[in-house]
């Protein structure tokens, strides 16, 4: 199982992460639309790390089960955490004057979505896109 990481510290790391994400999506054989979906999800999660946790890490691994291959994206930070997950998953909820489209959007862009967060400890978002 291959794994690759991008640490998110400066704003340009967001671009680096989404470029690597797109590259891997291409390698796995995603359609052009799914490549765009995957790259967009990377961009959203990387920017959330940069904006709300200051720094963190994006990692990718190619996963396989019996009859499917896919790409897993994990975004981890040791930032302030999220108190009310159901609130931040609502379309339009933002604390930064954004569109509040990031997290609910990522959930729709990907096939599997999981978020674990604890106040003052940090946040980990794990998502998977399966190859169709």
């Amino acid at each position: 199982m291959e794994k690759s990481c991008v640490s998110i510290k400066i704003e340009l790391d967001i671009v680096a992460a989404r470029q690597l994400g797109r590259e891997l999506a291409k390698q796995v054989g995603f359609s052009v639309v799914d490549q765009a979906r995957f790259a967009t999800a990377v961009s959203e999660l990387a920017r959330n790390i940069y904006l709300y946790a200051d720094q963190g890490e994006i990692s990718f691994d190619i996963i396989k089960n019996m009859n499917q291959s896919g790409l897993r994206l994990t975004a981890t930070d040791k930032g302030p955490g999220i108190r009310d997950i159901s609130q931040v998953m609502q379309d339009g909820y933002t604390t930064s004057g954004g569109l509040g489209a990031g997290l609910p959007g990522v959930r729709r862009l990907m096939d599997d979505f999981d978020i674990i967060s604890e106040e003052n400890i940090g946040t980990t978002v794990t998502v998977v896109k399966w190859k169709r």
Binding site: V32, V33, Q35, A36, R37, T40, D91, L99, A101, P104, G105, R108, L109
Partner: peptide
């Protein structure tokens, strides 16, 4: 606007 971009925007709810 590319088709893939249009579809992604809809997923984002934009």
């Amino acid at each position: 606007i590319q088709p893939a971009v249009a579809m992604t925007l809809i997923d984002l709810g934009i």
